[in-house]
């Protein structure tokens, strides 16, 4: 279901808006790359490449819904929580670029638009929501999948709203009421977001139970948990 919603074809949004978002995407991506490489030094390329391949392969896994329909993961928040916001956003952008270039899936002139929706709003924005939610939850491991699920649920309609904003700026259809487009897009994507939240919750939960050290977004929680344990041991001693 994601595939139909995010891969904007050419001509859907006018050329000036597409170019403006293309420039924004290039600039933003450059920043993500700098931050990501600073975090991972020379490990960045192999690990980010494998994570991008994971997102790409993961999107091929179909989750049956009902009556023959099925959906798949978009993976923005999942990638951001697992490998960090900068590398996660970069991976999503790479996946979009390669889908457009190798599979003709999504217009080449619309790449900037899709990158802003999926990578910046979906992954980076979703990660901000994740950090915000995690802050108000108890500082325990169990909170990590919950915060990731809430962020995933919100990130999908947020990305849809970002598309509607692009449509408002440079949509090529006249006399189409914007509120109707917004209602339809956000309405559908709230449902997709629920699916995304469930998959993200379960997947992050599994990784947290077997390799919590790999979950980038759980670093702070794990550190505080260890500190609390040490304090408890000291106070009993």
């Amino acid at each position: 279901m994601g595939r139909t919603a995010v891969h904007i074809p050419d001509g859907f949004i006018d050329a000036p808006t597409s170019i403006a978002f293309g420039v924004a995407a290039v600039a933003g991506l450059g920043y993500c790359l700098r931050r990501g490489s600073a975090e991972l030094d020379e490990r960045a390329a192999p690990l980010a490449g494998l994570t991008a391949a994971f997102v790409f392969a993961g999107q091929m896994l179909n989750f049956p819904v009902a009556a023959g329909t099925s959906g798949h993961l978009l993976g923005g928040v999942l990638a951001a929580v697992l490998v960090g916001p900068w590398i996660g956003a970069t991976c999503l952008a790479v996946v979009l670029l390669l889908q457009a270039l190798f599979f003709a899936d999504g217009g080449l002139t619309a790449l900037g638009l899709s990158t802003v929706n999926m990578s910046f709003v979906g992954a980076l924005g979703g990660y901000l929501v994740y950090r915000g939610v995690l802050r108000v939850l108890p500082q325990r491991r169990a909170s990590v999948p919950i915060a990731a699920a809430v962020a995933a649920a919100l990130s999908v309609p947020l990305a849809a709203a970002s598309f509607v904003l692009q449509f408002a700026l440079g949509g090529t259809v006249e006399d189409l009421s914007l509120t109707a487009v917004l209602a339809a897009m956000v309405g559908v994507h709230v449902l997709i977001g629920i699916g995304e939240a469930v998959i993200t919750f379960l997947t992050v939960g599994l990784v947290m139970s077997s390799r919590p050290d790999l979950v980038h977004g759980a670093r702070g929680v794990l550190r505080r948990e260890r500190a609390a344990e040490t304090a408890a041991v000291r106070s009993t001693a």
Binding site: T51, A53, F54, T203, L206, R211
Partner: peptide, 18 residues
């Protein structure tokens, strides 16, 4: 079940990356 497969796929991908 499918989500567990997805999680396992991530672990295998990341460890392969390392």
């Amino acid at each position: 079940v499918l989500s567990k497969s997805l999680g396992a796929l991530f672990l295998r991908s990341y460890e392969r990356g390392e």
